[in-house]
Amino acid sequence: MPSAENLIDAVLEDSGLTLQQLAAICAVEPEWVTKHIEEGLLNPLPQQHSEWRFSSAHLVRVRRIVSLERNFEAVPELAALVADMQEEIDELRRRLRRAGLE
């Protein structure tokens, strides 16, 4: 039986979050998300509708960036760079687990 987290991820991947939903979940204004998209720090899913959609990976990324900006007063570009590095570390750890090395 799939875990609740896997089920939530599956639902998010099927339909995605809207700009307003993502902003509300992350406790930021929709303008904050839009600004980060315009600056190339966030990339929404390819548009299938007339509005942007965001996956569970976007949700994690936005939460990381928001946390870095708020807790460490990081400029958006630096916060996004740190989020990039965290995502790369997470991916490398997944690869190590799959290879049975961790």
Rank of each mutant, 00 (worst) to 15 (best):
S3R: 13
S3Q: 06
A4C: 04
L7G: 04
D9P: 00
A10W: 00
A10L: 10
V11S: 02
V11N: 05
L12A: 07
L12I: 13
D14C: 06
S15K: 06
S15C: 01
G16L: 05
G16H: 04
G16A: 08
G16V: 07
L17W: 07
L17Q: 09
L17K: 10
L19F: 05
L19D: 06
Q20Y: 11
Q20N: 15
Q21E: 15
Q21G: 09
Q21Y: 01
L22V: 09
L22P: 09
A23T: 08
A24W: 06
C26P: 05
A27D: 15
V28P: 11
V28K: 12
V28G: 12
E29M: 05
E29Y: 01
E31D: 15
W32H: 14
V33P: 09
T34R: 15
H36L: 13
H36S: 08
E38K: 14
E39P: 00
E39W: 08
G40Q: 05
L41M: 08
P44W: 03
P46V: 02
P46G: 04
H49Y: 02
H49N: 12
H49S: 12
S50L: 07
W52D: 10
W52L: 06
W52V: 00
R53Q: 06
F54R: 07
F54G: 01
S56C: 04
A57L: 07
A57F: 03
H58E: 11
H58Y: 07
V60W: 08
V60L: 13
V60F: 03
R61G: 10
R61D: 08
R63F: 02
R63E: 14
R64D: 05
I65R: 04
I65H: 03
I65V: 13
I65T: 07
S67V: 02
S67F: 04
L68Q: 11
L68H: 11
R70L: 07
F72P: 02
F72Y: 14
E73D: 14
V75S: 11
V75N: 13
P76A: 12
L78T: 06
L78Q: 09
A79F: 00
A80G: 06
L81I: 02
L81P: 01
A83F: 02
A83C: 06
A83S: 15
D84H: 05
D84P: 05
Q86D: 04
E87L: 05
E87Q: 14
E88W: 07
E88R: 14
I89A: 13
I89P: 02
D90Q: 11
L92G: 00
L92Y: 09
R94I: 00
R94F: 01
R94D: 12
R95G: 01
R95P: 00
L96T: 07
R97W: 03
R98E: 15
G100W: 11
L101S: 13
L101Q: 14
